[in-house]
Amino acid sequence: MRSDAAENNGIDGSFLQPSDTEVQRWMSCAFNMAKEALESGEVPVGCLLVYNNMVLGKGRNEVNETKNATRHAEMVALDQVLEWCSDRELDPEEVCRRCVLYVTVEPCITCAAALRLMNIPLVVYGCKNERFGGCGSVLDISAADLPHTGTSFTCIPGHRADEAVDMLKTFYKQENPNVLKPKVRKDSLGPAGGSVTTQRESCEKSTSD
């Protein structure tokens, strides 16, 4: 098995203490994704899974198109990490143990448990998730004593929390459960598109190796 990808990444555990610059950089990518989602009428949550300065997973909520209520941004991103590992015949557990999740909203109870099962050690998030939060808001799954449910993880909450809350508020205000809105395709995105794209380039998923 190849291990070069794992080699220079936080052997000293430094990836567990990302610098302010790192946090700002990755969170701004996550926020751009959330904004993009909001503009296309979807749940404004963005997340990235970062490993060794590479984005292995990028997710947005895909509940509507998959009709699967568990397709939250985090789950989509975790699947991408698994795929990345299987393409390279790397042990997903070893990779995940060195991944950091950056997400605009506190992961829900399902996602928090999934992050444990995948052994993700650190989650940096924006605002609290008052309705479903699994890192303290409704339940604290991240730190709970669940010996058969993966490993507990650390959270760094509150990054640009007000902005994340505002996006959620805007979304829930416009959400009308009785009307099924036609889905706006991402590529037909209007105004903010230009500036978003440039920023987005820098957080593009790592495809090179």
Binding site: A69, G134, P147
Partner: peptide, 25 residues
């Protein structure tokens, strides 16, 4: 079900769950 699955059932709006045996978590 574990906590991930149990909450997934909340998200999915299941109406009833019947299970056979308990699990430690």
């Amino acid at each position: 079900p574990c906590v991930m699955c149990a909450m997934a059932l909340v998200h999915s709006r299941i109406s009833r769950v019947f299970y056979g045996t308990s699990s430690p978590d």
